[in-house]
Design a protein around this nucleic acid. Structure first.
Lengths: 358, 358
DNA sequence: CTGAAAGCGCTTACAG
DNA sequence: CTGAAAGCGCTTACAG
């Protein structure tokens, strides 16, 4: 077996062309799956590619061509499970398509945020960027990206931006469904714990709660609506307030899982049985939601899928044969999933007493 | 103000050279901070760079030079907080150094794992790779990387590999310190819940427990040593076993936080007060460790720092003036941190009773 | 301290 | 269906 070219160092397109007896242009055509190559030629080139373990170098393709095969993921809160799942979906879809995912953690309120973003995209020249909250709602970031003509997809943005693609779920609808579930179980005194007003999800989820209550003719007692900030401690605090009332709620729907976890702990410290004395529902399906006892009824966001769709949109936008994107395809809404676990049941105990009824 | 070159598209090194009145080689020298450029020349070039917002393109530098300014992070379990923290540290350090982090999620037992890795490095040509468990202990992955001559740093590997750099903490020592803490509080009947035998940390942490017990002359009751598998449910199971004994332990040290959380839930379901009736300690300082009540005493792994050091090592290895790496600098051990919270205290209740002593 | 030339490994635009 | 030439934007190896 003879080896053409330098042994040891990686094969180049020229090596493949020489050994195949074709021009580098033809090898390029085969690699890029362009039409109009004779099947026999193609098969032979492919065979040589395999023999030489040839892999086109990203840097060369990127420099010569219009694509970098790089997609960027910008995120702020690293601890958030949200980002982890988005990243997982994005990296898998990227691999399938021969792309690579470059991640960058940014502080949402860094003074030089725009410059950091601008620096990244002009050095990297990614084919597109995926933005997660809160960065996808940051005007400075969006401006920098627009100036650099970088295609973007916003994942779960607070509001849609003109001409910028987005992927999201329907928070309001999901919230309505959770509330419907509680009402369907027989609850009427259903408390709600809001998220912080500056986060879009807070309002949307509250609207869903209101809508469900209204549509079932269940009165909303404003004493049962608490302010929270999506953090564990605020769930504890809200629960302590709610559960010290003379007439307690029989169910608490917290705007997210972290607060629901706080409610759970507070309830148990007060000696209440969950879900017997109090049903609890959350939102997000965080990892902890299934670790506690009882495991939490909640909503699963399609994070993985949103990321896959985001990658898909970016790749499609970069194809030369890219069709004009209609406005309705620019903003995608993906289906969510209700996760019903053991923290919700029919109201078995009367508010204020611990006795169970049969 | 005149603009030389194409307005709109990004400036290149030639644009900077033309406007500065120097050669592209000199601009290159300034950009790369090479010595031997006249200060005045340098300052002028720098000014033009700023004016034109020139940023060298990674693809061109990568193709022409020996560095790609890309570092890869290979990981398996996306949900693990471990990876999140490592990634955070790596991405920040990369930005400081003008590098970018490319992430890839792989299945540890994918049949074509080696090929996936090989494909990635030959396409991307990263300057180095960071591997997290369990991938850093996967022979197929290591082999593929070695064949491609890609510098690697293993983060928290089960065992060190000849000639491959690694960063870790001292699990045994940390485990010993946690046990010492419990002994110091007055505990003698200290239970231990092991991790799965195939994970290196399991053994190391158990050794630390044994060492502390031995050095204080506290007998290890094998009835108080349970098998676990680092998962929540196994902590619940072990706790149920341990707490149903006639003579209960006064403290449980679980090999990781997830199991410690299981112990906590099991204890509380049995009506035991934590830490009054039972002290509980974990390992990892997982996010949930501070969300539960009482918050968990545990060990914080220097995940962020390990990642920063890993990036540091890879960048250093790629510098032309890289000094020969001595074996002791090849394997770094970073300091950990004991996180003492409210789940541990002096044993206040006698085993088997709920009465408190003063 | 500075620069002219060659070349990295591909794709583009064109020609046949 | 195929190929020769030019060029992407840098760094390398040299020369002065």
């Amino acid at each position: 077996m003879t080896t053409i070219g330098r042994t040891g160092s990686a094969a180049t397109i020229t090596d493949v062309a020489n050994r195949s007896g074709v021009s580098i242009k033809t090898v390029s055509r085969v690699i890029n799956q362009e039409a109009g190559v004779h099947p026999e030629t193609r098969d032979h080139v492919l065979k040589v590619v395999a023999e030489l373990k040839y892999r086109p170098k990203l840097s060369a393709r990127s420099l010569a061509g219009a694509r970098s095969f790089l997609i960027g993921l910008l995120y702020y809160d690293p601890s958030a499970a949200f980002v982890g799942d988005v990243q997982q979906g994005a990296t898998l879809r990227c691999r399938e398509a021969g792309y690579h995912l470059v991640v960058e953690s940014l502080h949402n309120d860094a003074p030089d945020l725009a410059q950091q973003v601008s620096r990244m995209v002009s050095a990297l020249q990614p084919d597109g960027m995926i933005l997660t909250p809160p960065l996808c709602d940051n005007p400075a970031v969006l401006k920098a990206l627009r100036e650099n003509h970088t295609p973007c997809v916003l994942v779960s943005p607070a509001r849609d931006v003109k001409g910028m693609a987005s992927v999201r779920m329907d928070d309001t609808k999901a919230s309505e469904e959770i509330t419907n579930l509680l009402i369907g179980l027989g609850h009427e005194r259903i408390a709600f714990i809001k998220g912080p007003p500056d986060q879009a999800a807070s309002g949307l989820r509250y609207q869903g709660y209101l809508r469900a209550m209204k549509s079932h003719g269940v009165a909303v007692d404003q004493d049962l609506v608490c302010e929270g900030d999506f953090v564990f401690a605020s769930g504890v605090e809200a629960a302590n307030k709610l559960l010290s009332r003379r007439v307690r709620p029989t169910a608490v729907f917290a705007g997210n899982d972290d607060m629901a976890l706080g409610v759970l702990v507070a309830a148990q410290r007060l000696g209440l049985a969950v879900p017997g004395d109090l049903s609890i529902a959350g939102f997000d399906d965080s990892p902890a939601a299934r670790l506690v006892w009882p495991p939490l009824t909640t909503v699963r966001q399609p994070k993985n899928e949103m990321a896959r769709v985001a990658v898909e949109m970016l790749i499609a936008a970069n194809r030369s044969d890219a069709p004009a994107v209609t406005e309705d395809r620019l903003h995608r809404v993906l289906p969510h999933e209700l996760v019903v676990r053991d923290s919700t049941s029919t109201p078995m105990a009367r508010a204020g007493s611990h006795g169970k009824r049969k």
